[in-house]
Write a protein that binds this DNA or RNA. Sequence first.
DNA 1: AACTCGGGGAT
DNA 2: ATCCCAGAGTT
Length: 341
Amino acid sequence: MIAWHAGNGRHDLPWQQTRDPYRVWLSEIMLQQTQVETVIPYYQRFLQRFPDVASLAAAPLDDVLALWAGLGYYARARNLHRAAQQVCGELAGRFPQTSLELAELPGIGRSTAAAIASFCFAEPAAILDGNVKRVLCRYFGIEGFPGERTVELRLWELAESLQPQTGEEAIRVYPQAQMDLGATICTRGKPACLHCPLSVDCVARLAGREADLPVARPKKAIPLRESDVLMLRTEDAVLLEQRPASGIWGGLYSLPQIEAGESAGQASLRYLGVALEGFVLQPVLRHSFTHFTLNIRPWRLNLPAVPQGVNAPGLRWTRFDELAEVGLPAPIRKLLEYPTD
DNA sequence: AACTCGGGGAT
DNA sequence: ATCCCAGAGTT
């Protein structure tokens, strides 16, 4: 694995050009359930704005979420921000240097802690991400869905037993080699077994079962949800509402939600203290998540000016030229960019 | 153990 | 349309 990595691994990714634990940590969080190519531009922008853990800790959460907007899994950004404040507060700016301590921070689990500790501090800690799971399931012929507890325990034991315990270089490189093999050779769809250094004694390969392992996640029906929202605009601004900190799109700004059984006019009364009329239903936006599908029904009303009076908390009139700096969910951003009358 | 949490790339 | 990606936290 290590010899293969030297000649065939990925060595040019932005977060591989440093051993700064802050940068490595940021990359690992962004890379959770997110592909490398998607992460790169977000990683660069984020570091430009927050070059170190102190600048991140000092920033308002809204600014952090704005930079995370479009990347998904926003709890990652909230946890990242909280962890930065812990490092700069309780830990007095001293970044944790062991996987055990790292795993105490919010958003850092066993695998992410191991990845940071092995890469930055040469700690012999095993990782177990999607790549490693796939490689191990195929190479050892592991049956059962890897998300199942017994299967995952078995995989962790294998990963631990394979992790080099001596030799700084081997300790550092082995987890990288596992991930690179999984990402470039032992891929989900059509693995390039002809180029794989493990193919000579890979159980799946020898049995011609590369396509069957790892066992796929059990299928589940995807429910459909409906959501009516207010699209209240003036010539140059739109009304946004901050979402609750937990749940879908936590902490991001979105269009004000019309509650079940409520009309757009009633919602405008609740939000602005004025019962507005003349809302027009815009085309429904369909957005698919991993575990449900959402139909968004936008009720649009153009106003001559921003209404005066007391606004409900969490509301903000936002100019269109400010939208780039606001944390908006990707589908809402698309909705606002879509031309209307 | 099951569920929640996004957006997009790959097929 | 479907699966899953450098998973973690909550219930």
